[in-house]
Write a protein that binds this DNA or RNA. Structure first.
Length: 583
RNA sequence: GCGGCGGUAGUCUAGCCUGGAUUAGGACGCCGGCCUGCCACGCCGGAGAUCCCGGGUUCAAAUCCCGGCCGCCGCACCA
C-alpha cells in the first residue's frame, strides 16, 4: 500500500516510531499492552504541551499553586476517596468459556436481586443457590471476586502495608488542602495543580496512546465557597466570558441529540447549564488551551455525562472531546464538580479539620439557649461519687447542646440516667458570631497529556509532495529552529559555512532556543527531516552569508525564505515564535 | 477476558494459500566516500531480519497445526 493510502493513525504511529516520538514499551520482550516509551522528540513535545498547560492553568493565575505528591498511597487514602469501594467491581468468570461478567449487573438482570455492597462470598453463595450459569455457554461460574482497577503494591519490602498507585492526582491535593490553605493565607478560591504520572490497571488497554496503564494527568482541584462562586467568577471572567464553547447537555443527550450547541461561558452560567459557575469558567479556559495547540474550535465539544456515567464523587461532569479521524470523538479532559464530597470524606476518616472559616461582613448576634447543670437538683436524683462523675461529664458538654437535647427530648440522658429540665438553669444568651465554618466545594479540570499529544499530532500531520510536515504550533515544536550550512565540502568556503553555521547554532542555544544543527545529506533532505518533526524555522548559511553576514530563514509551512542579518536573527525568531517558548 | 483479523531489517512491504533452488527479495531510511550554488539530487560502497515467541507435524517450516505475547476491530470493561 502506498504511504498516502494508509490511515492517518498508522502514519502517525510509523512517524512516531521512526523519529523517536513514542513506541510500545518492553519491545524486546514482546511488548506489554498499555505502556508506551517516549523518545527524544516525544518528550520534548510532551513537555511543551505541559508547559503550555501550566501557563494557561497555573502561571497566569495568582490563586493557583502547584504541588507534587507520591504515586504510592497508603490504602486509607483510597478508602476515604471511595475508590476502593467504587473502583472495584464484583466479577464472575465462566470456568468453561472464560467470559467475564460484572456480577452485580448479571445477577440483577437474571435473578432480579440487587447485590450492591455484598461480599464476593455472599455473591458466590447466591450464584450457587440459584444455579446461575454463564448466559453465553451455560458453563459454571468460578467464585466471585472483586476486580480492582487500582494497581496494588506494598509499603515496606516484606509484610508491608497494602498500598495503591494513584489513578488520579486529586487525593494528593485534597489531603494537603488544610496545610496549603494556611500557606496561601486562608483565602478562597484556591486552586491546587498537579502534573505527573498516574496508573490504572485497565482490563484491556487499547487504542495506542488513548488508554494507557501509566500516563500523565494535568489536573487542578479548585476550592471555592459555593455561596460566593457567582460573585467571584464575575471578578475574573473577563478573560473567557465571550469564549464560545460547544456543549451537548445531558438533557439533550437523553433526547438523542448529539449535536452541540454553542454557548459563551457567560451564557453557560446565566442559563444555569452548569451547576456551579466555576465549571463554566474552567471549561472556557480549557477550550482556549486546546485551541492554542492547533485544534480547531469546531472539532472540540463538551459532553455532559449522564447520571450513571458519572464518577461517584461528581455532581456534574463534562467531558471535553476532540474529534479524531481514527477514533471519532475522544475525551481529552474532564471537568467534574466534586462538591465537598472528598473534603468531607477525608475530614471524617482522618479527623483533620477541612473547614474554612468564613468571616461575615458584620458580626451577627444570635440568641442562644443554654442549659447549665443545677447540682442541687441533680443531687436529689443521685449522690456520692456517681454525682461527682456525672457532673464532671456534664461540664464537658456544651451548654447549647445540652439545651438542644432538653428541647428535643425533654430530658438529658447520661450514663443511663435521665435528667429533666428541672436539673438545669436555663438561660438565653446573646452570642456574637464573626463567621461560620464551611466545607469548600471543588471543581476539577483534568487533562490526559498523552491523549492531547495524540490529537495534536493528528491535527498537525500533513503531507506535502509525499513528504511529512508536522505543522506543530511553534511553541510545541521539539526544536524552535534548525541550522544548516548549505555546503559541507572541503572547499575553503564550504568549510567556512560549516564554521559560521555551528557558531550561529551555539549562540542560539546559549540564548535559550532549542536548536538543532544538521549537516548530513543534501540541503533538501535536511529541510525534509526538520519538517517531519515539526521544526518551524530553518536557518541556512550560504555563499551570500560569507559576503554580508545574512542568512536565509525558511518557514516550515510555506517553504518561503527570507534573508535576515545574523545579528538580528534572535529578534526575528522571537517575534515569529512568540514568547510562549520562554516559559 | 471472549470472538475475528493480523505480526517478515528503523519504516513500508514481496514471499505464506499450493512446505524445498531466495544466501528471505524490494523500496525508503541509516552509515562511509565522492559529488553538490537552496527543498528527500546523483554515483560507489556498507551495515541492518530471533521471518513475534514456544511447541508440534515433516526428510524439510517464514509458509501447515497448537499454545502464548503484542496490535487492530466487535462484545464485555473503562471508578
Amino acid at each position: 500500500m502506498s504511504v498516502s493510502g494508509r490511515g492517518l493513525y498508522d502514519k502517525i504511529v510509523d512517524l512516531a516510531k521512526r523519529r523517536g516520538i513514542f513506541w510500545v514499551s518492553f519491545e524486546i520482550y514482546g511488548g506489554v499492552a498499555g505502556f508506551y516509551d517516549f523518545g527524544p522528540i516525544g518528550v520534548l513535545i510532551k513537555r511543551n504541551i505541559m508547559n503550555q498547560w501550566l501557563k494557561y492553568f497555573v502561571y497566569s493565575r495568582e490563586n493557583i499553586i502547584e504541588v507534587e505528591t507520591p504515586i504510592v498511597n497508603p490504602r486509607v487514602v483510597f478508602r476515604a476517596s471511595g475508590h476502593e469501594e467504587h473502583f472495584t467491581d464484583p466479577v464472575l468468570v465462566c470456568s468453561k468459556c472464560g467470559r467475564v461478567y460484572r456480577a452485580d449487573h448479571l445477577i440483577k438482570d437474571v435473578i432480579g436481586v440487587n447485590v450492591e455492597g455484598w461480599s464476593p462470598g455472599e455473591i458466590t453463595k447466591l450464584v450457587r443457590e440459584k444455579g446461575l450459569k454463564c448466559p453465553e455457554c451455560g458453563g459454571e461460574f468460578e467464585s466471585a471476586f472483586n476486580a480492582l482497577l487500582l494497581f496494588t503494591t506494598q509499603i515496606g519490602p516484606y509484610k508491608g502495608e497494602t498500598a495503591y498507585l494513584k489513578p488520579e492526582h486529586a487525593q494528593g491535593m485534597f489531603i494537603n488542602f488544610p496545610h496549603l490553605f494556611k500557606i496561601m493565607r486562608s483565602t478562597l478560591p484556591l486552586g491546587i495543580a498537579q502534573v505527573g504520572r498516574v496508573a490504572r490497571n485497565e482490563i484491556s488497554p487499547r487504542q495506542g496512546l488513548l488508554r494507557l496503564r501509566e500516563f500523565n494527568i494535568m489536573e487542578v482541584e479548585f476550592f471555592f465557597d459555593p455561596a460566593e462562586a457567582e460573585r467571584e467568577v464575575y471578578e475574573v471572567i473577563g478573560e473567557v466570558e465571550d469564549e464560545k464553547v460547544r456543549v451537548v447537555t445531558a438533557e439533550e443527550r437523553i433526547k438523542g441529540v448529539e449535536e452541540p450547541i454553542e454557548y459563551t461561558v457567560k451564557e453557560l452560567i446565566e442559563k444555569r447549564i452548569v451547576k456551579t459557575p466555576w465549571l463554566a469558567y474552567w471549561m472556557g479556559i480549557g477550550n482556549k488551551y486546546v485551541k492554542s495547540m492547533g485544534i480547531p474550535g469546531d472539532k472540540i465539544r463538551f459532553l455532559e455525562k449522564l447520571t450513571h456515567e458519572r464518577a461517584h464523587y461528581s455532581a456534574q461532569t463534562f467531558d471535553q472531546e476532540v474529534y479524531t479521524e481514527r477514533f471519532g470523538w475522544i475525551e481529552v479532559a474532564g471537568y467534574a464538580y466534586r462538591t465537598s464530597y472528598d473534603v468531607e470524606r477525608h475530614a471524617e476518616l482522618s479527623g483533620a479539620d477541612f473547614t474554612v472559616f468564613k468571616r461575615f461582613k458584620e458580626p451577627v448576634v444570635v440568641k442562644e439557649e443554654k442549659a447549665y447543670p443545677n447540682p442541687g437538683e441533680i443531687s436529689k436524683i443521685i449522690s456520692g461519687d456517681k454525682l461527682k462523675e456525672l457532673l464532671q461529664s456534664l461540664y464537658q458538654r456544651k451548654p447549647e447542646e445540652v439545651a438542644r437535647e432538653l428541647r428535643e427530648k425533654g430530658f438529658v440522658e447520661l450514663a443511663g440516667i435521665k435528667l429533666p429540665s428541672s436539673c438545669f438553669y436555663l438561660k438565653t444568651e446573646e452570642v456574637k458570631l464573626h463567621g461560620e465554618k464551611i466545607y469548600p466545594h471543588v471543581v476539577e479540570p483534568s487533562f490526559g497529556l498523552e491523549r492531547l499529544l495524540y490529537v495534536i499530532l493528528e491535527y498537525s500531520y500533513m503531507e506535502r509532495e509525499d513528504k511529512v510536515v508536522l505543522r506543530l504550533p511553534p511553541y510545541l515544536a521539539p526544536y524552535h529552529v534548525a541550522v544548516f550550512p548549505l555546503m559541507t565540502g572541503k572547499k575553503p568556503e564550504h568549510v567556512k559555512m560549516v564554521e559560521v553555521a555551528r557558531s550561529i547554532y551555539r549562540n542560539l542555544v546559549g540564548r535559550g532556543f532549542r536548536a538543532l544543527y544538521d549537516e548530513e545529506g543534501s540541503i533538501g533532505r535536511r529541510y525534509a527531516r526538520s519538517d517531519e518533526i515539526g521544526i518551524p524555522f530553518a536557518v541556512t548559511v550560504d555563499h551570500q552569508t560569507l559576503d554580508d553576514n545574512t542568512v536565509t530563514v525558511r518557514d516550515r509551512d510555506t517553504t518561503m525564505q527570507v534573508r535576515v542579518k545574523i545579528n538580528e536573527l534572535e529578534k526575528y525568531l522571537v517575534e515569529k515564535i512568540g514568547l510562549e517558548f520562554l516559559i
